[in-house]
């Protein structure tokens, strides 16, 4: 049973990880905590639902909605946040909060409050393994999820370590002004982080939709846990976000399985607070180097 709980925990955790990575990516580069992250994904999930409704199938819907999400993220950053960038980070944060509410209201207006079902991207029978360890069940959707997470981790590592784009991201996230003196256009880097982050959000929403159903509040819990995972990982580390998410998912499922299902969220948050009391910078957060 333990193995199945672990796998279930990892698959829940993979959702948290992907949300956390999206949020951290945007935060690291632009310094903005994007509170609208979940609702932007939710809105895109509704758009995908509309496509499925006219008969395209979920995969085609995803492929149509991904470029739309890219455009959405790009536009939000460029036209609502960039113009007030010189004010302060907290004013940008307020804009994302406003966006969160606008999107929630708008989606209720357009699609109503009834939960909409969304098909799995890959359906079919799960893989079942039997052995001395008992019976282990792998759902195809979970395998897709793990593959996606692995891809994201791998791709990010390659980009950050070996490309000029990665170098630009590091430079801009450390000092936006000075990186301009090196010929880096920070605006471009901001745009990219929003584009990639928003596309990841949409993918998570569509992968989760068969379980959560599509509704205006479908991403609220994921976003909350994504933030928690990010904090656990140290908030400015992408790999920290991944591990934080997986850890959170596993802790939550083990608590749910062995202690009490009602208490699983409470209990897991208590565990995290305890971890943070011992290690305030999270698993991978940078201790800031300051000049004395």
């Amino acid at each position: 049973m333990f193995l199945n709980r672990l796998i279930l925990g990892l698959s829940t955790g993979a959702f948290y990880s992907l949300v956390a990575v999206g949020i951290v990516m945007i935060f690291k580069v632009t310094g903005v905590m994007n509170f609208a992250f979940g609702n932007m994904a939710m809105f895109m999930a509704y758009v995908a639902y509309t496509f499925v409704e006219i008969g395209t199938g979920p995969v085609v819907a995803l492929l149509v909605v991904l470029p739309l999400s890219a455009l959405f993220g790009f536009a939000v950053e460029k036209y609502t946040l960039r113009p007030i960038r010189h004010l302060s980070h907290s004013s940008m944060l307020i804009v994302t909060l406003g966006l969160l509410m606008i999107l929630e209201g708008l989606s209720t207006q357009i699609w109503g409050t009834q939960y909409k079902a969304f098909p799995e991207l890959v359906g079919g029978k799960p893989y079942i393994f039997k052995g001395a360890f008992g019976i282990v069940v792998f759902r195809k959707q979970d395998i897709l999820l793990f593959a996606l997470l692995a891809f994201v981790v791998f791709a990010t590592a390659i980009v950050m370590r070996y490309t000029k784009a990665g170098l630009a991201v590091k430079a801009v996230s450390e000092n936006e002004k000075i990186s301009q003196l090196m010929g880096i256009n920070p605006g471009k880097v901001f745009s990219w982080s929003w584009v990639v982050g928003t596309m990841m959000g949409t993918t998570v929403a569509l992968l989760g939709a068969p379980k959560t159903y599509i509704s205006p509040t479908m991403m609220v819990f994921y976003q909350l846990q994504g933030f928690t995972a990010a904090v656990l990982g140290g908030f400015d580390s992408l790999i920290g976000a991944v591990i934080g998410g997986l850890a959170l998912g596993v802790i939550e499922n083990l608590v749910g399985g062995y202690i009490s299902n009602e208490l699983k969220t409470t209990f897991s948050l208590v565990v995290i607070i305890t971890i943070l009391l011992i290690r305030p910078q999270g698993f991978f957060g940078s201790r800031e180097i300051r000049r004395v």
């Binding site: 000029k164 170098l167 630009a168 590091k170 430079a171 450390e174 990186s179 090196m182 010929g183 880096i184």
Partner: peptide, 16 residues
């Protein structure tokens, strides 16, 4: 860039 290595700093310098 204090959180980057010396080599990374030099690479950013050559960004253009």
């Amino acid at each position: 860039f204090q959180n980057m290595t010396v080599f990374e700093n030099l690479k950013v310098g050559a960004y253009t």
